[in-house]
Design a protein around this nucleic acid. Sequence first.
DNA 1: TTGAAAGCGCTAACAG
DNA 2: CTGTTAGCGCTTTCAA
Lengths: 331, 331
Amino acid sequence: MTTIKDVAKKAGVSFKTVSRVLNNDTAVRDSTRAKVLAAIEALDYQPNIVARSLRSQRTHTIGFLTDSIATTPYAGQILQGAQDLAWEHNILLLTVTTNGDQKMKQTAVNTLLNRQVDGIIYATMYHREVHPPDNIRDVPAVLLDCYVADQSLPSVVPDELAGGREVVEYLINKGHRRIGFICDQANVPAKIGRLQGYKEMLAAHNIPFDPDLLHMGESMQNGGYQCAMAIMQQPNPPTALFCYNDRMAMGAYDALRKLNLTIPEDVAIVGFDNQELIAAHLYPPLTTMELPHYQMGQWAVNHLLGLIEEPEAVSAVQQKLPCPVIVRLSA
Amino acid sequence: MTTIKDVAKKAGVSFKTVSRVLNNDTAVRDSTRAKVLAAIEALDYQPNIVARSLRSQRTHTIGFLTDSIATTPYAGQILQGAQDLAWEHNILLLTVTTNGDQKMKQTAVNTLLNRQVDGIIYATMYHREVHPPDNIRDVPAVLLDCYVADQSLPSVVPDELAGGREVVEYLINKGHRRIGFICDQANVPAKIGRLQGYKEMLAAHNIPFDPDLLHMGESMQNGGYQCAMAIMQQPNPPTALFCYNDRMAMGAYDALRKLNLTIPEDVAIVGFDNQELIAAHLYPPLTTMELPHYQMGQWAVNHLLGLIEEPEAVSAVQQKLPCPVIVRLSA
DNA sequence: TTGAAAGCGCTAACAG
DNA sequence: CTGTTAGCGCTTTCAA
């Protein structure tokens, strides 16, 4: 292994001067710098980051903790967003997945701490409240797609409310007045936010909320099928359907096909999540809302870097990122 | 920060003794060990892995290099497999995605090397030949879902040939004799292997290969649709269709629906890849072959750990892992 | 503008 | 069984 001393010897300077050159210290005469650079080049020297980390107390490494990564198509996007931004700053991600095991979470945080990570990102694969191990606070930490109830940790999540509003506004602009909402039955943040957005935007357009147009079910294909069936067989069915997510929309497609209703002529459909594999390949392709996974990844790293530079920043930002409409052919 | 010296002072021993306890050195009197352990407990001491790494020349970190992670549903499974096994050995993954950028690959390997990773896994998201940066050989390295032409680096890939054979055998056992193959037009390893497996198993059952039953197209939904249409409208159409992948199978479903043919009564269908989002949600759910992503992740780490322990092992194993059948209702 | 000395927290080598 | 001394490769502190 080539060390800084080898370079120093070759360049005929002290090894501290080499260190200065490596760290872009301006207090080095240009001619000296050139000599050092030449020696570095000649020896193909690469600094040992571990040694540097030990001394400088900065590893340029971020711990990236997720609850699951294998079972969701979103994980990759989040990770990519985080990594792209980290890479720009010469920072690498140490990834650990806990599969929701509480004890492993604790161990994982300890492990990351022992490795002296400069900060930790704690990410979930769907928007929800979490209870991270307490010692996550020993370093700067950012929550991604999740939050703690007391908002004591900075967090970034999708703006569900605005997303719900936007879907409805989009449909209203297309001329729809009777808009059904096929909704998850569980009271998760996504459901609460989207439902509220739905109601708010109806109200904003003086369309009274009609409880008959709101059906809840399991947030899967089958739930979507059931809800769509029920909602469309009423006396005065809606002309548009806002589906809680793309999987429910997929079920709704089946129901409408069964009822001999065409999309979007008879019923317009908008989903949520933009699950490529589903949304882009349904007939007709599904208009839906994209969850800002990549952007949340980027935001989390960016904010974390800020905290690392300035750990005194006390206010724990609770950031919401917009969900853009992906217009396809179903609405 | 609590250091090993604090523990030593508290326990009333030299700091080296603490180090021994930490490293499970048997040459420590039980009573001494107990004292040290008590002190560790009392101070909530956690060893600094960076310092340990610098001294021991082992970081217990593996570089995990991928070409893409955001755009494929497989990435998570591979990563999970790799991580699960690494975790058991107290090893963490430093992940970097290059998005296929050749220059970034080079930089990424350098970066990982500077960080003194104990080894590198170089993974792709579909089975293919690769040309990794040369300095990847500076540490033990394993290729995952890819290989180098001269087989000079160990590699693990799906056993495409056996997979193709198994599909055909499965269909033959179900009584089919005329089995069509809807195939990718690109000459990738998956296509070559599965096609050869198809031919071999037909031959093994004395079924002559009929070129009219082999149609190639774009390995997407649309290609599957086109091929299925063409193949089924021939004078003597097959009773079963082996589709190169699930996306082509998805297209084939549409074609058969158009032709008023039911699955599996009129035509049995088997896909390949087991893309959950597609396969499990088609009507009827798709029988398909699973790609061993999780297992490849595990194998790669396991093999890499072996190489790290025993770097002299020269033979670069080219491992093939089986693709299990996932039986659903389409065949 | 450059260098010498110290030391980050730990493990290796050797001695006792 | 335990301790001492050295030193991993680098940055920090202080001096020149």
